[in-house]
Protein backbone atom coordinates (compact mmCIF):
# COMPACT_ATOMS: atom_id res chain seq x y z
CA UNK A 1 0.00 0.00 0.00
CA UNK A 2 1.39 3.37 -1.03
CA UNK A 3 0.72 5.48 2.03
CA UNK A 4 1.75 8.78 0.46
CA UNK A 5 -0.66 8.19 -2.41
CA UNK A 6 -3.49 7.34 -0.06
CA UNK A 7 -2.87 10.36 2.10
CA UNK A 8 -2.81 12.65 -0.91
CA UNK A 9 -6.11 11.21 -2.08
CA UNK A 10 -7.70 11.58 1.34
CA UNK A 11 -6.51 15.17 1.69
CA UNK A 12 -7.94 16.03 -1.70
CA UNK A 13 -11.30 14.48 -0.90
CA UNK A 14 -11.49 16.00 2.58
CA UNK A 15 -10.32 19.48 1.61
CA UNK A 16 -12.78 19.76 -1.27
CA UNK A 17 -15.64 18.77 1.00
CA UNK A 18 -14.60 21.02 3.83
CA UNK A 19 -14.27 24.10 1.68
CA UNK A 20 -17.48 23.52 -0.26
CA UNK A 21 -19.31 22.75 2.99
CA UNK A 22 -18.01 25.98 4.43
CA UNK A 23 -19.11 27.94 1.35
CA UNK A 24 -22.56 26.33 1.32
CA UNK A 25 -23.00 27.19 4.99
CA UNK A 26 -22.70 30.85 4.04
CA UNK A 27 -26.24 30.60 2.64
CA UNK A 28 -27.67 29.88 6.06
CA UNK A 29 -30.06 32.69 6.90
CA UNK A 30 -29.90 34.45 3.51
CA UNK A 31 -31.19 31.90 1.00
CA UNK A 32 -33.49 33.04 -1.82
CA UNK A 33 -36.36 31.09 -0.28
CA UNK A 34 -36.57 29.39 3.10
CA UNK A 35 -36.64 25.91 1.58
CA UNK A 36 -33.35 26.55 -0.28
CA UNK A 37 -31.78 28.14 2.77
CA UNK A 38 -32.54 24.92 4.64
CA UNK A 39 -31.37 22.71 1.76
CA UNK A 40 -27.99 24.44 1.49
CA UNK A 41 -27.47 24.29 5.25
CA UNK A 42 -28.31 20.63 5.20
CA UNK A 43 -25.90 19.82 2.39
CA UNK A 44 -23.25 21.94 4.11
CA UNK A 45 -23.61 19.78 7.21
CA UNK A 46 -23.23 16.64 5.14
CA UNK A 47 -20.13 17.97 3.39
CA UNK A 48 -18.53 18.96 6.68
CA UNK A 49 -19.38 15.53 8.05
CA UNK A 50 -17.81 13.85 5.02
CA UNK A 51 -14.63 15.90 5.34
CA UNK A 52 -14.46 15.01 9.03
CA UNK A 53 -14.71 11.32 8.14
CA UNK A 54 -11.76 11.57 5.72
CA UNK A 55 -9.66 13.70 8.09
CA UNK A 56 -10.30 11.04 10.70
CA UNK A 57 -8.85 8.40 8.34
CA UNK A 58 -5.81 10.65 7.88
CA UNK A 59 -5.47 10.94 11.63
CA UNK A 60 -5.51 7.15 11.85
CA UNK A 61 -2.62 7.16 9.38
CA UNK A 62 -0.60 9.35 11.72
CA UNK A 63 -1.57 12.84 10.58
CA UNK A 64 -2.76 15.49 13.06
CA UNK A 65 -6.27 15.41 14.54
CA UNK A 66 -9.16 16.59 12.32
CA UNK A 67 -9.52 20.01 13.94
CA UNK A 68 -5.85 20.76 13.44
CA UNK A 69 -5.98 19.56 9.85
CA UNK A 70 -9.06 21.58 9.00
CA UNK A 71 -8.46 24.73 11.00
CA UNK A 72 -4.70 25.14 11.35
CA UNK A 73 -3.19 24.65 7.91
CA UNK A 74 -2.49 27.46 5.48
CA UNK A 75 -3.70 27.62 1.87
CA UNK A 76 -0.54 26.14 0.34
CA UNK A 77 -1.13 22.98 2.39
CA UNK A 78 -4.63 22.49 0.98
CA UNK A 79 -5.42 20.18 -1.94
CA UNK A 80 -8.86 21.44 -2.95
CA UNK A 81 -9.74 22.65 -6.44
CA UNK A 82 -10.49 26.29 -7.23
CA UNK A 83 -14.15 25.54 -7.92
CA UNK A 84 -14.95 25.06 -4.23
CA UNK A 85 -12.96 28.11 -3.15
CA UNK A 86 -14.88 30.68 -5.15
CA UNK A 87 -17.22 32.95 -3.16
CA UNK A 88 -20.89 31.92 -3.09
CA UNK A 89 -21.81 34.76 -5.46
CA UNK A 90 -25.47 34.77 -6.35
CA UNK A 91 -27.71 31.76 -6.01
CA UNK A 92 -27.35 30.77 -9.70
CA UNK A 93 -23.61 30.29 -9.27
CA UNK A 94 -23.94 28.38 -6.01
CA UNK A 95 -26.55 26.10 -7.56
CA UNK A 96 -24.47 25.42 -10.68
CA UNK A 97 -21.37 24.77 -8.58
CA UNK A 98 -23.34 22.35 -6.42
CA UNK A 99 -24.67 20.63 -9.55
CA UNK A 100 -21.25 20.30 -11.22
CA UNK A 101 -19.48 19.28 -8.03
CA UNK A 102 -21.96 16.73 -6.75
CA UNK A 103 -22.27 14.87 -10.02
CA UNK A 104 -18.52 14.26 -9.78
CA UNK A 105 -18.67 13.54 -6.07
CA UNK A 106 -21.35 10.89 -6.50
CA UNK A 107 -19.16 9.07 -9.06
CA UNK A 108 -16.13 9.35 -6.74
CA UNK A 109 -18.06 7.85 -3.86
CA UNK A 110 -19.24 4.93 -5.99
CA UNK A 111 -15.62 4.13 -6.95
CA UNK A 112 -14.38 4.73 -3.46
CA UNK A 113 -16.93 2.28 -2.08
CA UNK A 114 -15.19 -0.38 -4.26
CA UNK A 115 -11.67 0.74 -3.29
CA UNK A 116 -9.07 -1.79 -2.23
CA UNK A 117 -8.25 0.64 0.57
CA UNK A 118 -10.86 -0.64 2.94
CA UNK A 119 -11.14 2.20 5.45
CA UNK A 120 -12.09 4.62 2.66
CA UNK A 121 -14.38 2.04 1.06
CA UNK A 122 -16.29 1.71 4.32
CA UNK A 123 -16.65 5.46 4.75
CA UNK A 124 -17.82 5.88 1.15
CA UNK A 125 -20.31 3.02 1.42
CA UNK A 126 -21.75 4.62 4.52
CA UNK A 127 -21.95 8.16 3.16
CA UNK A 128 -22.84 7.71 -0.49
CA UNK A 129 -26.55 7.55 0.31
CA UNK A 130 -26.40 11.23 1.27
CA UNK A 131 -24.95 12.10 -2.13
CA UNK A 132 -28.10 10.78 -3.79
CA UNK A 133 -30.08 13.50 -2.09
CA UNK A 134 -27.57 16.17 -3.03
CA UNK A 135 -27.86 15.06 -6.65
CA UNK A 136 -31.62 14.90 -6.49
CA UNK A 137 -31.67 18.44 -5.17
CA UNK A 138 -29.24 19.79 -7.76
CA UNK A 139 -31.02 18.07 -10.65
CA UNK A 140 -34.46 19.20 -9.54
CA UNK A 141 -33.43 22.83 -9.20
CA UNK A 142 -31.37 22.93 -12.40
CA UNK A 143 -34.21 21.37 -14.38
CA UNK A 144 -36.74 23.74 -12.87
CA UNK A 145 -34.75 26.96 -13.17
CA UNK A 146 -33.15 25.94 -16.46
CA UNK A 147 -36.59 25.83 -18.05
CA UNK A 148 -38.42 28.62 -16.27
CA UNK A 149 -38.05 32.31 -16.96
CA UNK A 150 -35.76 34.14 -19.40
CA UNK A 151 -33.88 35.51 -16.41
CA UNK A 152 -33.41 32.18 -14.66
CA UNK A 153 -32.24 30.49 -17.86
CA UNK A 154 -29.82 33.29 -18.68
CA UNK A 155 -28.44 33.40 -15.12
CA UNK A 156 -27.87 29.66 -15.04
CA UNK A 157 -26.27 29.77 -18.47
CA UNK A 158 -23.85 32.50 -17.45
CA UNK A 159 -22.92 30.70 -14.26
CA UNK A 160 -22.46 27.45 -16.15
CA UNK A 161 -20.11 29.15 -18.63
CA UNK A 162 -18.21 30.80 -15.80
CA UNK A 163 -17.95 27.69 -13.62
CA UNK A 164 -17.08 25.17 -16.32
CA UNK A 165 -13.30 25.75 -16.53
CA UNK A 166 -13.17 25.55 -12.74
CA UNK A 167 -15.24 22.39 -12.77
CA UNK A 168 -12.77 20.74 -15.14
CA UNK A 169 -10.13 21.59 -12.53
CA UNK A 170 -11.80 19.03 -10.23
CA UNK A 171 -10.19 16.33 -12.35
CA UNK A 172 -6.58 17.32 -11.87
CA UNK A 173 -4.76 14.00 -11.49
CA UNK A 174 -2.99 13.00 -8.32
CA UNK A 175 0.83 12.90 -8.58
CA UNK A 176 0.37 9.24 -7.58
CA UNK A 177 -2.42 8.49 -10.03
CA UNK A 178 -0.75 5.51 -11.70
CA UNK A 179 -0.15 3.86 -8.32
CA UNK A 180 -3.68 4.51 -7.11
CA UNK A 181 -5.17 3.09 -10.30
CA UNK A 182 -2.94 0.02 -10.55
CA UNK A 183 -3.56 -0.96 -6.94
CA UNK A 184 -7.32 -0.51 -7.37
CA UNK A 185 -7.46 2.20 -4.75
CA UNK A 186 -8.93 4.88 -6.99
CA UNK A 187 -9.45 5.20 -10.75
CA UNK A 188 -7.87 7.74 -13.06
CA UNK A 189 -9.41 11.19 -13.00
CA UNK A 190 -9.93 11.07 -16.76
CA UNK A 191 -12.32 8.13 -16.23
CA UNK A 192 -14.28 10.08 -13.67
CA UNK A 193 -14.38 13.13 -15.88
CA UNK A 194 -15.78 11.14 -18.80
CA UNK A 195 -18.55 9.66 -16.67
CA UNK A 196 -19.23 13.04 -15.11
CA UNK A 197 -19.71 14.65 -18.51
CA UNK A 198 -22.22 12.02 -19.46
CA UNK A 199 -23.98 12.40 -16.15
CA UNK A 200 -24.36 16.20 -16.29
CA UNK A 201 -25.28 16.13 -19.98
CA UNK A 202 -28.23 13.89 -19.20
CA UNK A 203 -29.65 16.59 -17.00
CA UNK A 204 -28.62 19.60 -19.08
CA UNK A 205 -30.31 18.02 -22.10
CA UNK A 206 -33.60 18.36 -20.21
CA UNK A 207 -33.10 22.11 -19.86
CA UNK A 208 -32.66 25.05 -22.16
CA UNK A 209 -29.04 25.39 -21.12
CA UNK A 210 -26.24 24.92 -23.66
CA UNK A 211 -22.95 23.35 -22.82
CA UNK A 212 -19.85 24.44 -24.72
CA UNK A 213 -17.58 21.80 -26.20
CA UNK A 214 -15.25 20.59 -23.45
CA UNK A 215 -12.16 20.40 -25.64
CA UNK A 216 -12.28 24.18 -26.20
CA UNK A 217 -12.03 24.94 -22.49
CA UNK A 218 -8.81 24.95 -20.49
CA UNK A 219 -9.30 23.70 -16.97
CA UNK A 220 -8.29 25.83 -13.99
CA UNK A 221 -5.70 23.61 -12.36
CA UNK A 222 -3.28 23.85 -9.48
CA UNK A 223 -5.45 23.39 -6.41
CA UNK A 224 -4.50 19.77 -5.87
CA UNK A 225 -0.83 20.82 -5.74
CA UNK A 226 -1.38 23.71 -3.33
CA UNK A 227 -1.70 26.55 -5.83
CA UNK A 228 -4.94 28.30 -4.99
CA UNK A 229 -7.18 31.17 -5.93
CA UNK A 230 -7.01 34.41 -3.97
CA UNK A 231 -10.15 33.33 -2.10
CA UNK A 232 -8.85 30.38 -0.11
CA UNK A 233 -6.53 32.01 2.42
CA UNK A 234 -9.12 34.62 3.56
CA UNK A 235 -11.66 31.79 3.96
CA UNK A 236 -9.18 29.83 6.10
CA UNK A 237 -8.35 32.92 8.16
CA UNK A 238 -12.03 33.43 8.86
CA UNK A 239 -12.50 29.77 9.75
CA UNK A 240 -9.66 29.92 12.27
CA UNK A 241 -10.48 33.33 13.70
CA UNK A 242 -11.88 32.04 16.99
CA UNK A 243 -9.72 28.94 17.41
CA UNK A 244 -6.63 31.13 16.90
CA UNK A 245 -7.52 33.25 19.93
CA UNK A 246 -6.10 30.31 21.86
CA UNK A 247 -5.21 27.24 19.80
CA UNK A 248 -3.91 25.40 22.86
CA UNK A 249 -7.27 25.16 24.58
CA UNK A 250 -10.59 23.43 23.95
CA UNK A 251 -13.56 25.40 22.72
Amino acid sequence: MNELAIKELLYTLADNQLILGHRNSEWTGIGPILEEDIAFSSMAQDKLGHSLAFYTLLHELGESDPDTLAFMRNAAQFHCCHLVELPIGEYDFSLIRHFLYDHAEAIRFEYLAQSSYEPAAKVAAKLRGELKYHLLHANTMVKQLGNATAESISRLQQSLNYAFPYALGMFQPSPYEADLASSNIFPRESNIQAQWLESIQKILAQTQLQQTAVHTISPVLGGRLGQHSEYLQPLLDEMAEVINIDPSTEW
Partner: peptide, 9 residues
Amino acid sequence: KGAWVREAL
Protein backbone atom coordinates in the same frame (compact mmCIF):
# COMPACT_ATOMS: atom_id res chain seq x y z
CA LYS B 1 -31.54 38.81 -4.65
CA GLY B 2 -33.81 35.80 -4.38
CA ALA B 3 -36.76 37.31 -6.25
CA TRP B 4 -35.85 35.74 -9.58
CA VAL B 5 -35.60 32.29 -7.95
CA ARG B 6 -39.03 32.55 -6.40
CA GLU B 7 -40.48 33.82 -9.65
CA ALA B 8 -38.89 30.95 -11.59
CA LEU B 9 -40.20 28.39 -9.10
